[in-house]
Design a protein around this nucleic acid. Structure first.
Lengths: 164, 164
DNA sequence: TGCAACCAGTTGCAAAACACAAGCAGTTAG
DNA sequence: CTAACTGCTTGTGTTTTGCAACTGGTTGCA
């Protein structure tokens, strides 16, 4: 990690932090798949990241204050990774990427349904989902009103999978 | 270019197309800096891309239908690169990245001002700017109402540069 | 007509990043 | 007591990137 930045452009700086093929996928899995442990991130993702790359990216994301790591009280070797506020605020980027990919690329039906709902829900739904993430990752208390966005996305995904 | 995709997830597919360190910067320069020729993209960017990488990325973006290339009638060797509709629709991703970088990373003042305006302008301003891009890149006619978003962003940038 | 400057790339090579498989020390459940 | 699981690390080969020089052609100007 040399920290010589190429320019002070906000887009460039963002790309220098999360602009590789894996970082945003890890964050996606933490957000939508609720993966919090190393093994979960390693084995339960659709793309199959290698363990050394995962370890390296988690370090980078820790350094960039996008995630944090705590020991899991239930298991001395397990660590729990959580999103920080600025990690949670990457959601709009992911949502826009999902919307664009859904519109223009050969997305599979199961994996596309969440993108569709999130896209149709718009910024309002994103904000709601971010509040839920603040609850699960930062321990904030949330005023509940009906099923959570996370639950709705998951239910939609499962119904598509079941139908297939 | 092997086209074995890692998964059908829309976010992953999007990352497979533009998820490297340079593609989105090239598109940024085409959008905000109105760079349309190889040389312009090569020399007039803040980050300094190498010519072989630029050539390779332009090919990839052409293959992905994000940009097109035509011969420049004014010069037999010049090519003019233009954004396609789906290229233009990458703007919201760039805008979200700009907003996130502006909020959390050490953005330089000159290069940050555009990000701030674009972020404050919100989706409405993005839509307006996309209409302007459709005009310059796709030849669509646009109903003008006051100074364009592109002009306003450029003016703000120049006033910050001048003040420094 | 000739020459310097400009055009879009290409080529060769070294360095960095990545992918794959195996391994490691410690922990836990049975 | 042991098999399975934990978060990683190590080693090795392949791919991608970065840098500089170079190519074949075009253009503007004298």
């Amino acid at each position: 990690m040399t920290d010589d930045q190429r320019s002070g452009c906000p887009i460039n700086l963002t790309l220098e932090v999360v602009g590789d093929k894996w970082s945003l996928l890890i964050i996606r899995d933490m957000m939508f798949g609720n993966r919090r442990h190393f093994r979960e991130l390693l084995t339960k993702s659709d793309e199959g990241i290698s363990s050394n790359i995962l370890a390296d990216r988690l370090k980078t994301l820790l350094d960039a204050d996008i995630i944090t790591r705590e020991d899991d009280p239930s298991h001395k070797q397990k660590g729990i990774y959580s999103l920080t506020e600025q990690g949670i605020e990457l959601l709009p980027i992911l949502a826009q990427m999902a919307a664009w990919g859904y519109k223009y690329l050969p997305v599979s039906e199961e994996l596309g349904i969440r993108a569709r709902l999130l896209s149709e829900g718009g910024p309002k739904m994103w904000a709601e989902f971010m509040d839920e993430l603040r609850e699960t990752h930062l321990g904030h208390v949330r005023r509940k009103k009906g099923p959570s966005v996370g639950e709705r996305l998951q239910a939609a995904y499962e119904s598509v999978v079941k139908r297939a």
